[in-house]
């Protein structure tokens, strides 16, 4: 009895924290299906139109799809920026798969001169906040004439060093005996990478990709510094521009912007957890 009561006592704060963590998503969800006028009546005080304080309802009183329709049919700029985000994300992930995966494999499984130094470069760069590398990136992109193109965001992202670090952790965990056995059977090194490295380390690759995907969805610093033309902006820069006056539309847009990330999160949660755990624990 006592034990059960204790467990319930533990559960209450845990559940409260969980509700708290997901509440923004719930808020966006209800806001999406609320009419513009209903929202205005709740947040009037914030807009300076009403007395008292802003309030909210868990369920819309008059559910409507008006804002969703407006967003999907009458706002081409939203779609444009949605695609910009998609292009940036795809570009970065493709680059990571193409260059990051082999690099992680090479660092994890081979001994060659300079390996330690290269590895240290990766770790050091991984630890640096964007502000340290901002000017460096700007100088290169400027010299290449890539500023104000989507490449300016894609290329540095494609070579960022965090995903290779995660993949490295997973590749290190593959038993050497497996690779030796393949070598004895006459498999070439490239063959080993494709037939053993990628399949056995796949959870590491997926983990790194899921983490990088989420990172791409909320990239703010890079596009705000490297992209001047508004037409190239990702959603993350566009959303804060919608004022509180159009709160209904803004809520709806925020919610739609959230959908890809949530989908990836729900389908790849297991990998996400593995990827996070891999940064702290040796396999």
């Amino acid at each position: 009895m006592n034990k059960k009561r204790k467990r319930i006592l533990i559960c209450i704060p845990l559940c409260a924290a969980a509700v708290f963590a997901v509440s923004p998503v719930l808020f966006l969800l209800t806001g999406t299906f609320m009419g513009t006028r209903e929202i205005a009546s709740y947040i009037g005080p914030v807009l300076g139109e009403d007395e008292g304080f802003a309030v909210w309802r868990l369920m819309p009183l008059y559910p409507t799809l008006a804002n969703v329709v407006e967003l999907l049919l009458d706002s081409p700029e939203f779609f444009h920026m949605f695609w910009n985000t998609a292009k940036i994300t795809c570009g970065v992930l493709a680059g990571q798969l193409l260059f990051g995966t082999p690099a992680a494999w090479g660092l994890a499984r081979y001994a060659f001169p300079g390996k330690k130094k290269i590895y240290m470069c990766y770790i050091l760069l991984m630890m640096m906040p964007f502000q340290v590398t901002m000017l460096s990136e700007y100088l290169v992109l400027d010299a290449m004439g890539l500023l104000d193109t989507l490449w300016a965001v894609i290329l540095p992202g494609a070579f960022s060093t965090f995903p290779p670090f995660i993949m490295y952790r997973f590749f290190c965990g593959i038993p050497e005996s497996l690779i030796e056995a393949a070598r004895v059977d006459g498999a070439g090194e490239i063959m080993i990478f494709f037939k053993i490295g990628i399949p056995v380390g796949s959870s590491g690759i997926i983990s790194a990709m899921v983490l990088q995907f989420l990172e791409c969805q909320s990239m703010i610093e890079q596009p705000s510094v490297f992209l001047k033309t508004k037409r190239l902006w990702p959603l993350a820069l566009y959303l804060p521009e919608i004022g509180l006056k159009e709160a209904g539309f803004a809520l709806c847009a925020s919610f739609v912007a959230l959908i890809p990330a949530i989908c990836i999160f729900l389908s790849g949660q297991e990998y996400l957890e593995q990827g996070i755990a891999a940064t702290a624990i040796k396999e």
């Binding site: 969980a18 923004p24 947040i43 005080p45 802003a54 989420l214 993350a236 925020s254 959230l258 990330a261």
Partner: peptide, 29 residues
């Protein structure tokens, strides 16, 4: 519970801006 705690990680920063403004306004939630 674990899934719920991880959700904020998946929420793009831009999506919650509006909510933050509404919560922390002088006359906010």
């Amino acid at each position: 519970l674990k899934g719920a705690y991880l959700i904020p990680l998946a929420v793009p920063a831009a999506s919650v801006v509006l909510l933050w403004r509404l919560v922390f306004d002088r006359y906010g939630f």
